[in-house]
């Protein structure tokens, strides 16, 4: 098997996911045994024409983004979206909750006409995405898992259960029980519950589990002393494109 040619591209994002890969340290060398990196702006100048695997970081938010993502899709055998912005729209997508003009002005002031902008969408809104690696930033073990899976020619295991599962497997003390806010019970796992494990709360950066009981989640947060408004706001931080967050009616607590 010849080494797959992989490339990384950044769209609207902080590029933190890409930097995260450079932090692989020892694993980075083993990774280079496995694949050829042919394009990676954060680390090299080369570019290429075709890719076995294209990793996309960032959301789609400008007409240029749209053109570029179509182009990359045409040249990539497998396309993987990387991190919350690419998979969910992420933090960027919060701007969709406000009038576009107001957002433009707030960011660019009088130069706003120089920067055409569109409502933020995840990569999957424009092109077929083969695999998704969630997280803000993406989790490196999961990135390696997906990469190894692609090299082997198998579907990666992407979980659709709550962060609570990983906390319980690690026997972490529950952050809700410590009086902190937490979205772990409805947020997707795969991060090894890294935030709760280190005393932080889960912000739901990997998005919600499918069929999430949003009304139940709001009720849960109210039960732990948080306001309904705070609950919905924090649920929206990474999942603002999920319309159900505002709609789901909470009849309990």
């Amino acid at each position: 098997m010849s080494k797959p040619r992989i490339a990384f591209f950044d769209f609207t994002s902080c590029e933190g996911c890409q930097l995260n890969k450079l932090n692989l340290e020892n694993d980075l060398l083993s990774l280079l045994e496995l694949v050829d990196i042919v394009e990676f702006r954060e680390a090299m100048d080369d570019t290429a024409d075709t890719y076995d695997v294209a990793f996309i970081e960032g959301s789609i938010s400008t007409p240029t983004c749209v053109k570029r993502i179509y182009d990359i899709r045409r040249r990539a055998k497998v396309l993987v979206s990387l991190g919350s912005c690419a998979v969910l729209g992420g933090v960027n997508a919060m701007k969709n909750l406000h009038p576009a003009d107001w957002v433009q002005e707030a960011v660019y002031g009088e130069d706003k006409y120089l920067f055409p902008s569109m409502p933020v969408q995840p990569v999957s809104a424009y092109v077929k995405v083969d695999y998704e690696i969630r997280g803000c930033p993406m989790s490196t073990p999961e990135f390696l898992h997906v990469l190894k899976s692609i090299v082997l020619g198998r579907k990666p295991e992407i979980f659709d259960h709550a962060v609570c599962v990983e906390c319980k497997l690690h026997e972490n003390e529950c952050v809700l029980d410590k009086g902190m806010f937490c979205l772990g019970p409805v947020s997707r796992a795969g991060c090894e519950a890294v935030c709760p494990e280190n005393g932080q709360y889960c912000t739901g950066c990997r998005g919600l589990v499918s069929n999430a009981n949003i009304a139940g989640a709001v009720g849960m947060l109210k039960r732990h002393g948080f306001s309904e408004q705070e609950a919905r706001k924090k649920l929206q931080m990474y999942s603002s494109l999920n319309k159900l967050i505002n709609e789901a009616e909470c009849r309990h607590a």
Binding site: A162, C164, V165, P185, V186, G216, M220, R251
Partner: peptide, 14 residues
């Protein structure tokens, strides 16, 4: 109970 439950699986795991 399904209306309140968020399906986190804590009850199973523990």
């Amino acid at each position: 109970y399904a209306e309140i439950c968020v399906g986190c699986g804590t009850c199973n795991l523990l």
